[in-house]
Design a protein around this nucleic acid. Sequence first.
DNA 1: GAGTGGTCTAGACCACACC
DNA 2: GTGTGGTCTAGACCACTCA
Lengths: 250, 250
Amino acid sequence: MSTTPVHLALSVDRTSPVPLYFQLALQLEQAIETGRLEPGSLLGNEIELAARLGLSRPTVRQAIGSLVDKGLLVRRRGVGTQVVHSQVKRPLELTSLYDDLLAAGQQPATRVLSSATGTAPAAVAAALGVAPQAEVVTVVRLRSAHAEPIARMVNHLPVGLLDLPADALEATGLYRLMRAAGITLHSARQSVGARAATAAEAELLGEAVGAPLLTMERVTFDDRGRAVEYGSHVYRASRYSFAFQLLVRP
Amino acid sequence: MSTTPVHLALSVDRTSPVPLYFQLALQLEQAIETGRLEPGSLLGNEIELAARLGLSRPTVRQAIGSLVDKGLLVRRRGVGTQVVHSQVKRPLELTSLYDDLLAAGQQPATRVLSSATGTAPAAVAAALGVAPQAEVVTVVRLRSAHAEPIARMVNHLPVGLLDLPADALEATGLYRLMRAAGITLHSARQSVGARAATAAEAELLGEAVGAPLLTMERVTFDDRGRAVEYGSHVYRASRYSFAFQLLVRP
DNA sequence: GAGTGGTCTAGACCACACC
DNA sequence: GTGTGGTCTAGACCACTCA
């Protein structure tokens, strides 16, 4: 007999267009986040849960499985399904400096330093997977928060992919513009390092020459496999660092 | 009628203890990696694939779904399942410097500079979630490749979790020791930044004072939610950077 | 309209953990 | 031995895409 350790008010609405497994996953996730489902507590077995909700077991498993993938639950054969103890925030996402700053309660501001179309340098063309002398749009932006410069961001995009009016770029982030244009971001390959600031960078960012800068290069692909953006950014190490959570592959 | 765009030699062995969906996923993944399934090609519909292999559709879906989660395939309703164009290597894993260097063909060498048990500083205790004056093991290592120093790594672990003989630490990586001890790593929260080298760091790593260093702090949790390790590492920016691929959450 | 993936059901047997 | 998750089946209907 199962002990049904927690009595949650779970229910599904079969008239809703939202998939049943998704409704259940949503409610479980909320119960975990609000603490109604305590860390370490057992969820009760899948069969009983399915019976209680009038669902089939595969549907319940699909809901639970999605939360296991998110790292919120852990399944143990012969034991049961438990809520993870550690506070999993969110696994690493395609971080957007704009959104990061917003989330941190800072007010991001952007100044477009230049925006031009021209032939791609060899390294950029290779990263984007376009012909060596193909035309690309190059945008250089200075991102600040609280009137303090944070980063210089250089982006290259294939021409014709997206309109990039300066006022839109100064009002929001590049990824938001892409998503709004119907581009589905799929994956990115990125590299994070550090180096000393050049004279020009020091001047622009208000650091000393030789000050440590955090660097990131990133190629982003959409779901058709097209490279949609190549970025090469430098951040003031004194003002910014990347923080993220990641899950170990099972 | 479906066009069956690719003729793959797929088969499953029902006498094997390996799950059928996993066998299929493995073969599809291999076909993608070797190029037999070309980027952009359609996989053929799930029903037919199931019939061809003598499997049920849910089993085939489970195999395909696992590759979609890995970012190797993209499903489009009404269209089919396609191989992604971009070469997805592996999503971000819990990177181990030891394994990174091995994979890069370098020969990692480790020197244990110190290893001691003592009361945890407040910041360390907070990160590990142990009592403020609890005992922790602190290990300091110098990691090199090709006789060139790469990083200084400082790790704190709860006492009693794991035996850490110096010779084992010099022969392999910390995470490998943990896994071998039956610890299942689950998630990690980490932060990557940069700063200038102190005199001691410069001396140890063979850099100039003030040279840019890449820093990483990381707390790692096991599947029971216990913090099993807190690390604070510095890398020579001139010799190392983090490269990884990530998937956009769907 | 034809073809695809998305969702869902009601069972079944197995492998593993724990008592 | 008992209870759990892990795997698998053979269907079904729906929603979306594209011609």
